[in-house]
């Protein structure tokens, strides 16, 4: 899939005999997957999704025709569902989609390349960016204005100013 396509979920096993399927949603709020339409699979087919139970959905194709049987549903097992990046609503001020941040080139304020943003962590104490250094190893910086003063998603770069570190050991 192209970079402009974002993986939003995966179709799982069939549910019942009437064409319903289990869908694993990767969205922040799992139920919000139904708001993204059309969903596109890797073969270019488009789908719309309606939740029929917890994790159980009815899928309709581009013509609005639902899956009719369990056999139809079985053919879609493990199908990944994507949306175009342009379909996501604008992020708020100082908010960034993880899909936009991951892969950005991290540079110092003098333009030297540090590496690429490999992951974004948030375990309840503020977000942080994990940068995979070009020469190997990782660098983790807090996702703050002081440490990441500039982000240019279109240009594919982020300016990173790693804060100084001091060790506290007994």
């Amino acid at each position: 899939m192209a970079r402009g396509q974002i993986l939003m979920g995966v179709i799982g096993r069939p549910h019942g005999v009437r064409g319903l399927v289990h869908v694993q949603s990767y969205t922040a709020d799992p139920a919000s997957l139904a708001r993204y339409a059309p969903l596109r699979d890797s073969r270019g087919r488009t789908w719309s999704l309606t939740w029929r139970g917890e994790g159980v959905a009815e899928l309709r194709d581009a013509d609005g025709v639902p899956l009719r049987s369990r056999n139809d549903a079985e053919r879609l097992v493990n199908t990944q569902l994507f949306v175009d990046r342009a379909q996501l609503p604008d992020a708020g001020e100082d908010e960034f989609y993880l899909a936009d941040l991951i892969g950005l080139r991290a540079e110092t304020d003098r333009g030297a390349t540090l590496g690429r943003i490999a992951a974004v962590h948030d375990y309840g104490a503020g977000s942080s960016l994990e940068i995979a250094r070009d020469g190997g190893g990782i660098l983790i910086v807090p996702f703050t204005r002081a440490s990441v003063p500039e982000i240019a998603v279109e240009a594919g770069r982020a300016v990173v100013v790693p804060p100084p570190e001091i060790e506290a050991r007994a």
Binding site: T27, L88, G92, E95, F96, L98, S127
Partner: peptide, 13 residues
């Protein structure tokens, strides 16, 4: 487990 990015957002502090 980092999971998938999908429509998840990070806020710059």
């Amino acid at each position: 487990f980092t999971g998938h990015a999908a429509d998840k957002k990070a806020k710059r502090g």
